[in-house]
Simulated assay, not measured.
Amino acid sequence: MTLPPADSELGKLMATLPRAGRVEWIGLRPARDEPMQAVERVEATTGVGLVGDRYKSGSGKRGVTLIQAEHLPVIAKLAGHAAVAPATLRRNVVVSGIPLVALRDRRFRIGDVVLEGTDACDPCSRMEAALGPGGYNAMRGMGGLCARIVEGGEFAIGDAVEALQAGS
């Protein structure tokens, strides 16, 4: 996705966010087909991923996966459930109060960590087993954001999620 020039009207609109977000939940995937482990805080390694999470890659484009807390009740409703636990959706971080789509192709900070939104985190076929028939489609458009770790460090539940200005 190519962003409009920062000084254009659309560029200014896309750079303006109502407020910072907040980390609500953190989870690690220790191994394939293993249950997620909820943690209070996590260490992020630059260009790699989260310590204790099985997804680590050389490019780091999917070093962290995030999902919007406000989307969880919608996904649950569309999948025919009263609620859906964050671990069911297998994303590392649940955030509230900031639109994740606005962080794609930009840098943002959580705790000590600087991340860059790289791509939409589309659902996988495993969501059919996790949510039941139609689970994949219940998540479409609400699967969250993949991010690479630009500057490592730690972050925890309750930390702010803040977009950074270009060049930060």
Rank of each mutant, 00 (worst) to 15 (best):
T2M: 06
L3F: 00
P4S: 08
A6Q: 09
D7P: 02
A15S: 14
P18S: 12
A20M: 00
W25T: 09
I26F: 01
L28M: 06
A31S: 05
R32W: 04
E34A: 15
M36F: 12
M36K: 06
A38Y: 04
E40H: 11
A44H: 08
A44G: 08
T46F: 11
Y55K: 05
K56V: 03
G60V: 07
K61P: 01
G63N: 01
G63W: 05
G63A: 15
V64H: 03
T65Y: 06
T65N: 05
I67Y: 09
H71L: 08
L72T: 12
K77W: 12
H81E: 12
P86A: 11
A87T: 15
T88C: 11
L100S: 12
V101C: 07
A102S: 10
D105H: 04
R106F: 00
R106G: 01
R107L: 07
F108M: 02
F108H: 06
I110A: 02
D112M: 13
E116M: 04
G117Q: 11
D119S: 14
A120G: 09
A120K: 13
P123N: 11
S125N: 08
R126E: 11
A129V: 02
G132L: 11
P133L: 12
Y136I: 05
N137P: 01
A138F: 03
M142P: 04
G143I: 03
L145R: 03
L145V: 01
I149D: 10
I149L: 08
V150Y: 00
V150N: 00
E151S: 15
G152W: 06
G153E: 15
F155G: 06
F155E: 07
A156D: 04
E162V: 13
E162Y: 00
A163T: 00
A163H: 02
